[in-house]
C-alpha cells in the first residue's frame, strides 16, 4: 500500500490543477493580505476599538471561508478521477493483477491524496491565521483545533469523491460532487438566515444539508472555535452575516464528519472490491 500512497501523493503534487490552485491561492492571499494590511494600518492610525472588534473577525472568517472554498475545490479536482480515470485509461489494469489487494489501492489513494490535501489546507490556514494575528493583533483561541477542523474539510470531500469515483465516470462524479458541495454551502447560508430570523424550518433545512455534506458545518465550527462568543455580546454580533456562525455546531457534528469520512471510505473500498473492471 505504501507504493500506492507514495505515487498518489506524487501525482497529486504534480497535477496542473495544483499549480493553478497554488497560483490562485497566492493571488488570493496576496489580495487578502493587502486588504488586511491597509485595514489594520488605518485602524492603527485612527483607533476605534469597537470597529476593530467588528471588522477583524469578519476579515478572518472571510479569509477562512474562501480559503475553505479553494481547498474544497482542490479536493474535488484531485479525487474526482482517482479511480474512474484509471479505469477509463486502462492504468488500473496494470495494478490490480499485482500482489496488492483492492482495498489497498483505495486506501492508498485516500491516504496519498488526503495527506497532500491536509498539508495544503494546514498551510493555507496558518497563512490566514498569521496574517490576521500579526497584522491586527486579534486574539484567537483554539487555533490548533481550528486547523485540524480546517484540514478535515477537504478530507470529507475527498472521501465522498473517492467513493463516487469507484462507481461513476470522472465527469459525472465531478458534477455530483459539486452539487453536493453546493448543497452544503447553500444549506449553511440558509441555516444562518434561519438563526437570524429565528425560523425553525430554515434551521432544520441547514442541519439536513449538513448531514448530507458536513463541510459547511465544519467551517461554522471553526469560526466558533477561533472566536468563542460566550459571554461577549459584541462577539455574538460578529458572528452575524453569511461567513459567521450564529449557532455553534455541536461536537457531535465533528464526530459525524469523522464517521462520514470513515463510512464513505469504507463504502469506496466495498464498491471497488465488488466491481468488474
Amino acid at each position: 500500500m505504501l507504493a500506492i500512497i507514495k505515487i498518489t501523493f506524487r501525482e497529486a503534487m504534480g497535477r496542473k490543477v495544483v499549480l493553478i490552485s497554488l497560483i490562485l491561492a497566492a493571488a488570493f492571499l496576496g489580495l487578502y493580505g493587502t486588504g488586511v494590511h491597509f485595514v489594520a494600518r488605518d485602524l492603527a492610525r485612527h483607533p476605534n476599538p469597537m470597529l476593530a472588534q467588528m471588522i477583524y473577525p469578519q476579515l478572518l472568517s472571510f479569509g477562512l471561508y474562501f480559503g475553505g472554498f479553494i481547498v474544497s475545490f482542490l479536493a474535488i479536482f484531485s479525487a474526482v478521477g482517482a479511480i474512474a480515470s484509471e479505469i477509463e485509461s486502462g492504468i488500473i489494469q496494470t495494478i490490480i493483477p499485482k500482489p496488492v489487494r483492492r482495498y489497498e489501492i483505495v486506501l492508498g489513494k485516500f491516504l496519498g491524496t488526503g495527506l497532500f490535501l491536509a498539508l495544503y489546507a494546514a498551510l493555507f490556514f496558518m497563512i490566514i491565521y498569521l496574517l490576521i494575528n500579526l497584522k491586527t493583533g486579534l486574539e484567537l483561541t483554539g487555533q490548533w483545533n481550528a486547523m485540524a477542523l480546517f484540514t478535515l474539510q477537504p478530507v470529507v470531500l475527498l472521501a465522498v469523491t473517492l467513493c463516487g469515483s469507484t462507481m461513476l465516470p470522472t465527469i459525472a462524479n465531478g458534477v455530483v460532487m459539486f452539487m453536493l458541495y453546493a448543497v452544503s454551502v447553500i444549506g449553511g447560508m440558509v441555516e444562518q438566515i434561519g438563526w437570524l430570523i429565528n425560523n425553525a424550518a430554515l434551521q432544520h433545512t441547514g442541519i439536513l444539508a449538513s448531514l448530507i455534506m458536513p463541510v459547511d458545518a465544519l467551517y461554522r465550527k471553526i469560526v466558533h472555535v477561533l472566536m468563542n462568543p460566550a459571554g461577549d455580546p459584541l462577539q455574538a454580533i460578529q458572528q452575524m452575516g453569511p461567513f459567521g456562525s450564529m449557532s455553534e455546531p455541536s461536537v457531535w457534528m465533528v464526530v459525524y464528519a469523522v464517521l462520514y469520512v470513515v463510512s464513505f471510505t469504507g463504502l469506496a473500498v466495498y464498491l471497488f472490491s465488488k466491481r468488474d473492471i
Binding site: 505515487i7 501525482e11 492504468i91 489494469q93 496494470t94
Partner: peptide
C-alpha cells in the same frame, strides 16, 4: 506477469 491489451502507464 501481465501485459494488458489496452494498457496505459503513468
Amino acid at each position: 506477469g501481465f501485459l494488458p491489451e489496452n494498457f496505459r502507464y503513468h
